[in-house]
């Protein structure tokens, strides 16, 4: 039996903790079909940090970011995100908290195809009750930042994969969330486009008052990580600095 790894602590110089998990457990099913997705996960993520979660399929990466984003409830353990103890909050409170504090970037972009690009970007603000005019204006600003100001009235289907992911990034940032959760943001993109998306994320999403947790299989983007947490069988096996991970990653 291997010894339990030390908590994946944030760098000592980190000003504040965005995420603190201790002994987080999550399982699905029951009886013979019981699957332990997370087994006593300890993880710290600091503000201003970009942490990548890597590991083979089924190792629990997506479950972990779902728990961190308040989408799934942990079965056991402590989950404190941006100072909120998610395990003690009512579902409605978690939903409101998520809408205000968390931004999402999905592998499949998840843009609503019947809306324009700027309407898609404005959704998080509209959900918070921001007047449509203001929400669209803010969406336009974000689209300018990601280089798609000229395509604000386009339909998502008229954009390339990389452009759609940039729209998704704009949408994830439009309401100024303090935690950004990205699920395989580059896996559907070619190397060059993926690189561009990561540069965009680093340039616009990584800030001192925001943490970014990114799930990926894509070793081409490890260089953008501040730290890389390697998961296996529901556990965090190791946490390494981003560049060091890049150096040891077989190509």
């Amino acid at each position: 039996m291997s010894p339990a790894p030390a908590p994946a602590a944030a760098p000592a110089a980190a000003p504040a903790l965005a995420i603190r998990c201790r002994g987080v457990e999550k399982s699905y099913g029951s009886g013979d079909a019981l699957v332990h997705a997370l087994r006593k996960v300890d993880l710290d993520v600091a503000m201003g940090e970009l942490l990548m979660l890597v590991g083979p399929s089924g190792c629990g990466k997506t479950t972990l970011i779902s728990v961190l984003a308040g989408i799934l409830d942990a079965d056991a353990g402590e989950v404190a995100v941006l100072g909120a103890d998610l395990r003690t909050m009512a579902k409605r409170e978690v939903t409101r908290w998520r809408g205000e504090q968390v931004g999402f970037v999905f592998q499949a972009y998840n843009l609503v195809p019947t809306l324009t690009v700027e309407e898609n970007v404005a959704i998080p603000l509209l959900l918070r009750g921001t007047p449509r005019r203001l929400a669209l204006a803010r969406a336009g600003e974000l689209l300018e930042q990601v280089g798609l100001g000229a395509r604000r009235r386009s339909a998502p289907r008229d954009l390339s994969g990389g452009q759609q992911q940039r729209v998704a990034i704009a949408r994830s940032l439009v309401h100024e969330p303090r935690l950004l959760v990205c699920d395989e943001p580059t896996s559907a993109l070619d190397a060059e486009t993926g690189h561009g998306v990561m540069e965009l994320l680093r340039a616009h999403a990584v800030r001192a008052d925001r943490a970014l947790v990114l799930v990926t299989h894509d070793s081409r983007i490890f260089e953008f990580a501040d730290r890389i947490a390697r998961m296996e069988d529901g556990r965090i096996r190791a946490v390494e600095p981003g560049r060091a991970a890049l150096a040891t990653e077989p190509h």
């Binding site: 984003a69 989408i71 409605r92 939903t95 409101r96 998520r98 809408g99 205000e100 968390v102 999402f104 999905f106 998840n110 609503v112 959704i123 998080p124 959900l127 918070r128």
Partner: peptide, 10 residues
């Protein structure tokens, strides 16, 4: 709808 729910739609 799932995306909206994730983004905070009640």
């Amino acid at each position: 709808f799932g995306t909206l729910k994730a983004m905070g739609a009640t």
